[in-house]
Design a protein around this nucleic acid. Structure first.
Length: 491
DNA sequence: GAGTTTGAAACT
DNA sequence: CAGTTTCAAACTC
């Protein structure tokens, strides 16, 4: 079993305590999943010895059961009965036990192998003073269930969603499984849900909604339509006969549940709220990443939402502020940006890969930035990728990075654009209008690219600013949002 | 903060 | 093993 501390430290302590004495301190609570060194010593040592150990090991006086694996390098989570909240193991939670004396598994502190510390429990026996009683209680529990203190979750380490994205660990399983009946396994009463794992065949839950597939934010139906979870939920809320067109069959045969089954059930609002909260659906309710989202899908969702054809449950904070036409304009802009970026990226790649060999490493970047590109090609509108183009502006640009990063004047398109910031401000002329209205019927120059991207940047900046200041309607008027270039304003 | 709901743990 | 009770966390208001 892995020790929590370096061998030399342990040996040093062992020497000072007396080897025979130390070795007699066998691991009593191995069931707790703890190191024999740490778990054994304080249990059977005098206070002086414990103090010595703690001093040598530089640890605070803690329970032998209190050392969480999360604090133990080299041991993967979850080893001990550490409460896992939203994928992140809670090292210690303050219990509120009243009847159990904190000596039963009801008590989270006791179950996790910790002494109660600053808890608001009553008649607590889960402390140093009641070590004997505590040990007896643990032994009694272990006699009944040898696995009582073992981790409940197995299969893979729990994935802590640091970024807030609660992607569920599909490999981990709850050993015993949950037995939820009423919550659909969508509340923290459910141990699986709380541990941020999917219910498995071990579970005996009823009407489970915590299964594979439900963690997805978007369903692509057989019609290749993008449907958000919120949309599906709203569909069901609006009509009991609503059918989510999906032939998706989940591999878990024992749980033949589909999205239809999943969302056709009478999901209460609170459940939906909990679901979306836990699954980190963004405020707009469209849980998709822009780089992978098709442009037509964006337009469909955004436009439809704005026009009211989709009654999304989760409305954007800006939903009541941005005119539908603004949304349409933004979508158009995104398409143009995508087209321009892709075209320019390809052309830049060809041209600049040739040029980069001629440049010196110490080339003046600013000077280079002002260099006119060689690309002046006609791009007929009907040859552009159009709506099929992924909105992966930077990704496309990065395709240029290959071969450019090592010594090129522009390690990326972004750098190139940053350099342009030093250029004189250009006016938003009608050229953007032409691009927007007529696609790319003229040469798509770098100037146009800058024009489009800057316009997009400004639009997004205003969106952000407006979202921030929405509480103050006078701060930014919706009419001021997404103001297109001159001459492009809608009537 | 009080009361209710829920499901795991404990018990029979 | 199944049913019931106890318990404390989660949840609601």
């Amino acid at each position: 079993m892995t020790s929590f501390f370096p061998p030399e430290t342990v040996e040093s302590v062992k020497g000072e305590l007396g080897k025979s004495d130390f070795t007699q301190r066998k691991l009593i609570f191995t069931e707790f999943g703890l190191s024999p060194v740490v778990s054994a010593s304080p249990l059977h040592t005098s206070p002086q010895e414990r103090l010595l150990l703690q001093t040598k090991l530089h640890v605070l006086p803690r329970s032998p059961l209190s050392f969480k694996k999360s604090e133990s390098p080299g041991i993967s989570l979850p080893q001990a009965r550490t409460k896992i909240i939203n994928g992140t193991p809670k090292s210690h939670r303050q219990c509120h036990c009243k009847q159990s004396k904190c000596l039963k598994l009801y008590c989270e502190c006791f179950a996790s192998g910790s002494y109660c510390d600053e808890c608001s429990c009553a008649n607590c026996h889960n402390n140093v003073e009641n070590e004997d009683v505590r040990r007896e209680a643990a032994e009694c529990i272990l006699e009944r269930n040898p696995n009582a203190f073992k981790p409940k979750i197995t299969g893979s380490p729990c994935t802590p969603p640091d970024d807030g994205d609660a992607a569920k660990d599909v490999l981990a399983k709850h050993i015993k499984g949950c037995h939820c009946k009423r919550t659909g396994c969508l509340k923290k009463y459910c141990e699986c849900f709380q541990a941020n794992i999917l219910c498995s065949e071990n579970c005996k839950c009823v009407s489970c909604k915590n299964m594979e597939g439900s963690e997805l934010g978007m369903v692509v139906t057989s019609e290749n339509h993008c449907k958000t979870k919120a949309y599906i939920q709203q569909e069901n809320a609006n009509s009991s006969s609503a059918v989510v067109s999906s032939s998706h069959i989940f591999p878990q045969e024992s749980r033949k549940r589909t999205f239809r089954e999943l969302f056709d059930s009478n999901m209460r609002d609170t459940e939906i709220r909990e679901f979306t909260k836990h699954h980190a659906v963004d405020p707009v309710g469209v849980h998709v990443s822009i780089p992978t989202l098709r442009a037509d899908c964006v337009c469909q969702i955004a436009s439809s939402a704005a026009l009211g054809s989709l009654k999304l449950t989760y409305r954007s904070l800006l939903a009541d502020a941005i005119h539908p036409l603004d949304t349409t304009e933004l979508c158009s802009l995104l398409v143009v940006v995508s087209d321009a970026a892709k075209f320019l990226a390809d052309e830049h790649c060809k041209a600049q890969i040739k040029e980069v060999k001629e440049y010196q490493m110490a080339c003046d970047l600013e000077k280079d930035c002002k260099k006119e590109p060689d690309v002046h090609q006609v791009v007929p509108h009907n040859q552009l990728p159009g709506s099929q183009t992924d909105i992966t502006v930077m990704d496309n640009s990065r395709s240029c990075d290959i071969g450019m990063q090592d010594g090129g004047p522009f390690s990326s398109e972004g750098d190139y654009l940053m350099c342009d910031e030093k250029d004189k401000l250009f006016t938003r002329s009608a050229s953007l209008d032409q691009n927007l209205n007529h696609g790319c019927n003229e040469n798509f120059t770098e100037e146009h690219e800058r024009l489009v991207l800057t316009c997009l940047r400004d639009c997004l900046g205003k969106l952000i600013a407006f979202g921030t200041m929405k509480d103050d309607p006078e701060a930014i008027r919706p009419e001021a949002m997404l103001s297109p270039p001159s001459g492009h304003r809608r009537p």
